[in-house]
Design a protein around this nucleic acid. Sequence first.
DNA 1: AATCTGACTGTTG
DNA 2: CCAACAGCCAGAT
Length: 118
Amino acid sequence: MAPVAGFRSRVLAAVRRIPAGRVATYGDIAAAAGSPRASRAVGNIMRGCKAAGVPCHRVVAAGGRLGGFGGRGQLKRDLLRAEGVPVVGSRIREFAARRWTKFPPRLDRTEPGAPASA
DNA sequence: AATCTGACTGTTG
DNA sequence: CCAACAGCCAGAT
């Protein structure tokens, strides 16, 4: 069977599903698209993300870092802060808590990865 | 088809 | 914390 859709389509769809006030890493988007190692490819797609309706500014780098934004890291920071995402320098506060994934964490079980505190 | 590129990531120093 | 290196992936040339 051929893939359900182009890698790019799935990536854009995933980015679009990121709710305001939340962020996802390139790796998360890549995973949502079916290739958890294609973070780089996701970045390349984001680079051409000129289409409105695609909150490419909500896609950040791992570790809660801003990542790139066509050299406009400042703009990306402002956009995120405007949506309620506190950013200090090149880092996002409470990154783990604001990190969005298509697989919601299970809180009904004491598992590592759940935002136990803060 | 082969090579280069890059809004990435993890490891090592 | 930052710099350098290596691994990985999809798209463009």
